[in-house]
Every structure is written in C-alpha cells, then in structure tokens.
C-alpha cells in the first residue's frame, strides 16, 4: 500500500511539472496556432530569475513568483510584437523564428550568467515532508502540485467564464468572423502569448528548487510538454490536464521498472502509435473545422 501511494505521488509530481510547462504551450498553440519552441527558454528564464532574485536580493522563492510571472509575460509580449505577429499566416516559420529566439536566449544567458549549474533554495516553510496514507512526500512537491492545479483552474475559468475568454474561444473557432464582430484579435493574441510566457516563467521558478538550473534545461521540458499537448489534443485544456496526468504516472511507473530514458522512449513510441490512429489527440473535443 505504501508503495502504491508513493508511486502515485511520484507520478503526480512528474505530472504537475508537465502540466505547468505544457499549460502555457497549450494556451498559445490552442489560441494562436503558434508552436512556441522558445517556450523551454521562457521556463529557463523563469528559473534564472528565481535564482537571481534569491542570490542578489535575498528574496524568498514564494515572494518572487509574482514578479517573475510579470517579467516573463512582458518578455513574451515583446517577442509577440517584434516577431511572432508577422508570422501568423506562416505556421511552419513560427517554429523556426521561435527556435532562433530560443537559441539566442540560451546563449545570452550562458554569456551573462555563466554555463555552470545553479541551485535555488527551497522556501524554508515548505522544506519538510508530509505523511499521506503511510507514504511520505516532500511538502514542496505537493505545493507545486497545488499551484499547477490552481493555475489550471484559473486559466480554465478565464477561458470559460470571462468575456475575454469568450472572445478567445470565438477567435479560435474563426478569426475572420470574430474580427468582423469587433473583437480585437491582434490584442487577444498578444495577451495570450504574454500569459502563456508568464506561466512558463512561473513553471521554471517553481521547478528550480527541484532540479538544477542551467541554460540548456529548457530543451528537455519543451519536448516533454509538446508530447503532452500532442497526446491531449490541441484546443483542449482538459485534454492537457488529463494527458499530463497520464504521461506523468506512466513515466513514473516505467521509470521504476527500468530507467528514465527507457520510460521516455516507450512513452514516445506509444504517442507515435496513438497519433496514427487518433491524430486529433486522445481528449480532443469534437469541433467543426
């Protein structure tokens, strides 16, 4: 029983990280159709901001979260204005442009902050562990899980119940008609991109005490997050939630029986096979194209 619970908790921890990283990606892709390959770099920048604020200014991680969200969101906003908005009708080129931006970001960080690994302190109030049904789990991991679910809920509520969310849904279904009804789709795209970037930054900051921080850390996260989005189906926030849970638990279980790499490979093979027969993703809603 202990084993089962602790295995589930390990999987949930993986799931929460996947969800944090994939959420921003899914929002941006779902609304604007842009695959943001610089997403991993937003995550990495969030982690570096956390490190910088802690080392330079002595801020605790929890206090700096809001600042990090705003900083990275502002960066996302700038990138949308400078580059992305010119490419909305060339989806393949958005991949390239964001990839180029990602590489530049990585190199800038390497040149300014150095290429060595950095470590961020866990908030002292959350560094203990908690007993759940006989298994122990770190309080911080549970906190990350709670934040991930909280962010998901907040995003879902914005999407579902606010007038801005209504406009987003209208744009997603048909941008031209939505625009002709007076919805400022350019502004909506910009805000979406900024919001997605901000969430990525937040993800990076939250992950930073669990993993080491390095300029290359983004690449692995972004690939995993894409798998989540591909499996969950685009334009489906619930799909993103469900597939992060499935992928996290599966990887956790497979990793227990073999190792992380084999787990990753098996998950990828499974995804490639699944998309052959369900290209729209496992949890995609039926929408008229």
């Amino acid at each position: 029983m202990d084993f089962v619970v602790s295995q589930i908790l390990t999987g949930l921890s993986l799931s929460s990280i996947l969800l944090l990283v994939a959420l921003g990606l899914a929002i941006i892709y779902g609304v604007t159709g842009v695959i943001n390959l610089a997403h991993g770099e937003f995550v990495m920048l969030g982690a570096y901001c956390a490190w910088l604020l802690q080392v330079q200014f002595g801020w605790s991680l929890l206090a700096s979260l809001a600042v990090i969200f705003l900083l990275i969101a502002a960066l996302g906003w700038l990138i949308e204005v400078a580059v992305i908005r010119h490419l909305y009708d060339r989806p393949l080129d958005t991949i390239l442009a964001t990839w180029g931006l990602g590489v530049m970001t990585q190199q800038i960080v390497r040149l300014t902050a150095g290429g060595e690994l950095r470590y961020v302190q866990m908030p002292p109030s959350l560094s203990g562990s908690v007993d759940i049904l006989g298994a122990t789990d770190s309080a911080y991991r549970l906190f990350v899980l709670a934040v991930a679910l909280g962010l998901f809920l907040a995003t879902w509520c914005i999407y579902r119940y606010t007038s801005f969310g209504l406009k987003l849904r209208a744009i997603t279904q048909n941008r031209a008609i939505a625009s002709s009804f007076g919805i400022n789709s350019a502004r909506a795209y910009r805000l979406t991109f900024a919001y997605g970037a901000g969430i990525a930054g937040l993800a990076g900051a939250l992950i930073s005490p669990l993993k080491s921080v390095s300029p290359e850390m983004g690449t692995t996260y972004v690939v995993d997050a894409f798998m989540v989005v591909v499996l969950g189906g685009v334009q489906s926030l619930v799909g993103t939630l469900a597939s992060s849970a499935v992928l996290g638990e599966t990887s956790g279980l497979l990793a227990y029986y073999s190792n992380d790499t084999i787990a990753k490979a098996l998950v990828l093979v499974a995804i490639v096979i699944i998309i052959r027969f369900r290209p729209q993703g496992l949890f995609a809603p039926r929408v008229r194209a």
Binding site: I35, P91, L92, I275, R278, P279
Partner: peptide, 15 residues
Amino acid sequence: GRIAGVYAAIITLAA
C-alpha cells in the same frame, strides 16, 4: 495519421 506541418516537425524533434 495525416500528421502534417507543425505537428510532424515536433515529432521529428522528439524522436
């Protein structure tokens, strides 16, 4: 599976 465009690109990267 009629995966094309950006999706195919991502899968090649993941592979």
